[in-house]
Amino acid sequence: MSADASGGEAAAGSPVWWRRRRWQVTIGIFVTLLLVTGLGAYALVRHLNANITRADYDAQLTDRPTNEVEDGPRLPLDILVMGSDSREGDNAIDEEAADSERADVTILMHLSADRRRAYGVSLPRDGLVDRPDCTLADGTVVPGETQVMFNEAYEVGGAACLIQTVEQLTGVRIEHHVEIDFTGFKRMVDAIGGVEVCIPFAVNDPDKGIFLDAGVQKLDGDQSLDYVRERQNLSRTGDIGRMRRQQAFVASMAAQVVSADMLLQPHRLLSFLDAATASLTIDPGLGGVWDLTQLARQFAGIGLDNIEFVTVPFVESTTQPGRLEWTPEAEGLWERIRADEPLGPYAEGAIRAADQPGSGGGPKGPGGPGPSTEPDAPDDQLEATPDGLCR
Rank of each mutant, 00 (worst) to 15 (best):
H110P: 05
E70D: 12
A191F: 03
A350T: 04
E152N: 10
I27V: 15
L108C: 07
I302K: 00
V69F: 14
Q265A: 15
P386T: 10
G184W: 06
L136T: 13
L80C: 08
R242T: 06
P266E: 08
V156C: 02
V197M: 09
L169F: 00
T170D: 03
G360L: 02
A214I: 03
G215S: 07
G221R: 06
S224D: 06
I93H: 14
G171H: 09
L264T: 11
I180S: 14
F272T: 00
D90R: 11
Q217Y: 04
V228Y: 02
D181G: 10
D207A: 14
Q256D: 03
D104H: 00
I199E: 07
I282N: 04
Q164D: 02
L295D: 04
V289G: 05
P328R: 07
D56P: 08
F30L: 15
K208N: 15
W326P: 13
E96H: 11
G358P: 02
R336V: 09
V172K: 01
A248R: 09
I307A: 00
L292Y: 09
L48C: 06
Y57F: 15
A159F: 02
T373A: 12
V16A: 15
A59V: 15
A275K: 07
L111Y: 05
Q320F: 13
G157L: 01
L286R: 05
D190S: 07
A92I: 15
D58P: 07
H176D: 09
T26Y: 12
G120V: 09
Q232R: 12
N67F: 10
M262E: 05
R54N: 09
L324W: 14
T237W: 10
N49Y: 00
F314Q: 13
V148M: 04
N151D: 08
R125H: 05
R244G: 09
A92H: 12
S279R: 02
C161S: 02
V36G: 07
V257W: 03
E167F: 00
V216E: 13
G72Y: 07
A103D: 07
N51Q: 14
R102D: 02
G8I: 00
P266H: 04
Q147C: 09
L286D: 03
P342L: 02
L108Y: 06
D380R: 10
Y346P: 07
D274L: 11
T311V: 13
N49I: 00
V195R: 02
G139A: 11
Q168L: 07
R116N: 13
M82T: 11
P345M: 04
